[in-house]
Design a protein around this nucleic acid. Sequence first.
DNA 1: GTAAATTCCTGCGAAAACTCAGATTCTGTC
DNA 2: GACAGAATCTGAGTTTTCGCAGGAATTTAC
Lengths: 251, 251
Amino acid sequence: MEGQINCSDCTNKLCYIQQHCSPNWVSILSASKNQLWYKKGQYIFREGDRIFGLYFVERGKVKIISTGLNNKEQIVRLATTGHVIGHRGYGSETYPIGAVALEDTQVCFLDNEIIYDAFMNNPKFTIALMMFYSFELRKTEIRERHLAQMTIREKIADTLLYLKEIFGMNSADGSLSATLSRQEIADIAGTSAEQVIRELSDFESEKLIAKNGRKLLLLNVDGLFKIVAAHNRNRYSAAWHSIDSNSFPQN
Amino acid sequence: MEGQINCSDCTNKLCYIQQHCSPNWVSILSASKNQLWYKKGQYIFREGDRIFGLYFVERGKVKIISTGLNNKEQIVRLATTGHVIGHRGYGSETYPIGAVALEDTQVCFLDNEIIYDAFMNNPKFTIALMMFYSFELRKTEIRERHLAQMTIREKIADTLLYLKEIFGMNSADGSLSATLSRQEIADIAGTSAEQVIRELSDFESEKLIAKNGRKLLLLNVDGLFKIVAAHNRNRYSAAWHSIDSNSFPQN
DNA sequence: GTAAATTCCTGCGAAAACTCAGATTCTGTC
DNA sequence: GACAGAATCTGAGTTTTCGCAGGAATTTAC
């Protein structure tokens, strides 16, 4: 089941390796990489693990978590096809965060040594990775303000929009592609599951969303935007929630 | 007053350019850079400004802010000597954040074009920048959890420790090197100035700190650590609040 | 398809945090 | 050193958010 696909046969066109490494280095990394499959709920890495390399998400959905008091999880970031999780470590550094598959997920792992050689020989690859982290940093800084300043209602509306932007929704019925538990939505919004449930019920009675079991349908995306709009004057853009590698500089 | 110092005469040994570019490129960048001075309170760049390049902090203290509803500021990050603020932009991208000098500050500016050429020709420089952003991202992710899960008391204790780690304190009397207003402390902790004042009074009566006008003295750093320790089991380290460029890989 | 387990939902009392108003202290300037 | 303006401090009422408990619905396992 876990045959290693060669990069030349890979269908993921968002992969930084494919996009920014020389053909020669694509071959080298293709031979060096370790393709891994994770089932829903499995850890890709845990807080405290030694860092051995980088993970490139080829397919699937991942939550990046930081665990606090009483094992309360905070989901600090979501990742999907084309994203990078983990980071090159140094010394005996360990991950301060963990990564868990939200559905069946495939990643390519490259260890510290080979990735360092790839960086040294493929400047555009390194630049692309640098801009990825820089971009994620800016997004996280905006989220930092949102967590500090938004009301619960606003945080939950913001979370639904975040889920739509990163994982997408079915344009026919408006159903979100990712189905998270109420607790997981709370772990993104920074509140409790009860508050999420209450607010989702309010949104439903306001015809902003509909519930189909655990699955959520966004009936009125503009209405959700209006709830958070005052916090994003002049600068809110879907770009803050999505990756568009084609926007990266190619000059 | 604003004579351009040559990089070869610069005393900032934490500068990524000095550390990771070839001698030839240090000369090129030295000639291309624009040294800028900012007085306390001045903007280095504002939210909405076009992005023209990168700023390297040579000396001073800087707050990175994100402005929300009713112009309420969130300080998302603090920076000092050796840090990079801003980031390479693409297209007509604008800053979603602003940077303000907390005291008289000197920065070196390099525009997008020259920095791109430097990246293409100095792989170690690019890697160092990539790791800087990656490291800042991890720190911001931890802060994200803290903002979501800590009580006001804990957030304020955490903020005092953050100020100590990033800007330092006088080891003789324990006074923090940076003097921020109560409102600015609130803008870091994610609360109101009143709550900060109340909590600082509590800390004072508990002999954890002393107040000397606006200046704060940390009398019992361990005591402050104990307040936040439960949120940082197994992994809290001063490293999360400071930059040590010597830890970056040199191999 | 049925049962067990988990997740979801609702109400309510308690706790935490917020905001306003007014008094006091500090800071910078002349 | 005195003054004006700004920042800090304190109290009190209000609002928001939390967290438990119990019941309903949904999902999972067999």
